[in-house]
Design a protein around this nucleic acid. Structure first.
Lengths: 240, 240
DNA sequence: TGTTGGATACTAGTATATCAATTATCGTCA
DNA sequence: TGACGATAATTGATATACTAGTATCCAACA
């Protein structure tokens, strides 16, 4: 039992040297990860039916951890649970996407301004390293790895600004945008543009030009908005 | 069974006329609501021990729905689950609060600017109605009702701007700030200041003065930041 | 023919009992 | 005093059964 304190209130001892709960890999979280990846990659198509029982049998576990995973996915907006009816891979909420873009612009605008104010040479080097990796991946046409480094670039700016929580928040906000973007064919030419835009942002941060950094970020984020109307025609039933 | 479509993909019929899942009141969600309210109101003190079994007995239900509720609360950051050890009401994460304020300023700044651009007379009337109610509650010293209308004011601005999702997001971000604020004694004088600040924001929106509205909102949000260091002295053990 | 109504099968929600894995406590012993 | 080991307690997971809604299908009926 954890050590008791004054108010009948107790706190764990050994478990919490790091301050945060040690999230051991449980069955539920493993299943969550699998489904999360499958839904994000569109391997599981929006609107597809899921069944606790079937998934449980597939992974060779009981319904309990599957259920926990599905509940978490529902909260993230990746599945829709209809009580006593069924569970479905969430269709992409069209109406939420413009708002998600606004949120992203607002928060990343704030973040890049702060990063510009506090960036040190080692921070610039960090961005350079990411951009260099992007160049390699773009050259080899490795779209998936390229995208990872794209995320890393934005995450790094949040970290430099001292706002890691903002990136964590943005990851959840970006979810539906990313699903929509997966529907677009990987345009190789676009990768070069992204790199250029990243370089522009990096340069503005390096010379501590707040307004330029903000403008460059806005331009960059505007360029990555997927054309929903077109996607909707190509993939009816994937949106709502 | 839901109606089948082309791809082996099925969609619910009756359940989804409104577009969103009809969240029937399940036992789990009811317990979630109870605990959520109790934690937010500080009725359950940060650091207090919870036990699935005890809660289940208290409400006269099994461990299953209690467990689901606790998992959702853990995701919201309101409880901390230490595997094989115990579950505790989350202490207020001091380090996250400044970042939460930054997020709030960023998003509400964006929101109020948009609202200023698109506000119509009926929107201003809506804000006036809320402010009027705040005056009544302040006069009667009803701090709880006053706070509700404070939330309503900010929510209304989001709605006017056409970004209801931003307010939904902010509600989750605000959680820990609100818990900290609950620790401050209800300062009656502060209520009048809040009303004044709201009026300033409302006036700026009414005359479509973007910069003034933004500045007023920034000033307002800066004024409601709780003094963490002081609270920490008064309530050691409530923070981490 | 078209509609209604109910039987039926299916799914998620809940209950219960049980075991496993891990942790914290506390008494024992050197 | 300090280390060690038994013990109790708690969450994680399993298995099973039952309940309560939901969609489908088909037969009876107008």
């Amino acid at each position: 039992m954890p050590q008791p304190t004054s108010q009948g209130t107790v706190l764990p001892l050994f478990t919490e040297p790091g301050g945060t709960p040690i999230r051991r890999v449980t069955t539920a979280s493993a299943i969550y990860g699998r489904l999360h990846a499958a839904i994000l990659s569109l391997e599981m198509k929006p609107g597809a039916a899921l069944q606790e029982k079937r998934i449980a049998e597939e992974f060779g576990v009981s319904r309990t951890p599957v259920r926990e995973a599905l509940l978490r996915l529902a909260e993230a907006g990746l599945v829709e649970i209809f009580p006593q009816s069924g569970t479905f891979v969430a269709r992409i909420p069209v109406s939420a996407i413009p708002e998600a873009v606004v949120i992203r612009k607002s928060l990343e605008g704030t973040t890049v301004e702060k990063a510009t104010a506090v960036a040190e040479p080692k921070d610039i080097a960090r961005l350079d390293a990411i951009i260099a990796r992007q160049r390699v991946h773009a050259g080899l046409g490795e779209t998936s790895a390229f995208h990872e480094q794209d995320e890393a670039f934005h995450e790094a700016i949040s970290a430099i600004a001292g706002y890691p929580g903002i990136w964590a928040l943005l990851k959840t906000v970006k979810l539906q945008i990313d699903r929509a973007r997966r529907l677009t064919l990987p345009a190789l030419g676009r990768m070069d543009s992204v790199i250029e835009e990243h370089v522009t942002i990096r340069d503005a941060i390096a010379v501590h030009d707040r307004d330029a950094a903000h403008a460059a970020m806005m331009h960059h984020l505007s360029a990555v908005i997927p054309d929903i109307d077109e996607l909707r025609l190509l993939h009816p039933g994937f949106f709502r």
